[in-house]
Amino acid sequence: MRALTVRPGEKDSLAVVDMPDPVPGDGEVLAEGLALGICGTDREIAAAEYGWAPPGAERLVLGHESLGRVRSAPEGSGFARGDLIVGVVRRPDPVPCPACAHGEFDMCRNGRYTERGIKEIHGYGSELWTVEAGYAVKLDPALERVGVLMEPATVLAKAWDQIERIGARAWFGPERALVTGAGPIGLLAAMMGVQRGLDVHVLDRVTEGAKPRLVRELGAEYRTGALRDACDGIKPDIIIEATGVGPLVFEAMANTAAAGVLCLTGVSPAGRHLSVDAGLINRDIVLENDVVFGSVNANLRHYRLAAEALARADQGWLEALITRRVPLDRAEEALRPAPDDVKVVLELRSG
Rank of each mutant, 00 (worst) to 15 (best):
A101H: 14
G103E: 12
G103S: 14
E104V: 07
F105H: 15
R109L: 15
G111Q: 14
Y113W: 15
G117C: 13
K119G: 12
E120P: 05
I121Y: 13
G125L: 11
S126C: 08
E127L: 02
V131Q: 09
E132W: 10
E132Y: 05
E132D: 14
A133Q: 14
G134E: 09
Y135Q: 10
Y135F: 10
A136Y: 08
A136G: 00
V137Y: 00
V137C: 03
V137A: 00
L139F: 02
P141F: 10
P141Y: 09
A142F: 05
L143W: 08
E144R: 15
R145C: 00
V148N: 02
L149R: 06
T154Y: 03
V155S: 12
A157I: 02
A157D: 10
K158I: 09
I163S: 10
R165Q: 13
I166P: 00
G167E: 06
G167W: 04
A168I: 00
A170E: 07
W171K: 08
F172Y: 14
F172T: 05
E175S: 08
R176V: 06
A177Q: 13
L178S: 04
V179C: 07
T180C: 13
A182Y: 11
A182E: 08
A182S: 13
I185E: 07
L187R: 07
L187P: 08
A189E: 01
M191A: 08
M191P: 02
M192G: 07
M192A: 06
M192W: 06
M192S: 01
Q195F: 06
R196D: 04
D199C: 02
H201A: 09
H201E: 07
L203T: 09
R205L: 15
L214E: 00
L214M: 04
R216A: 11
L218K: 01
L218E: 04
L218F: 03
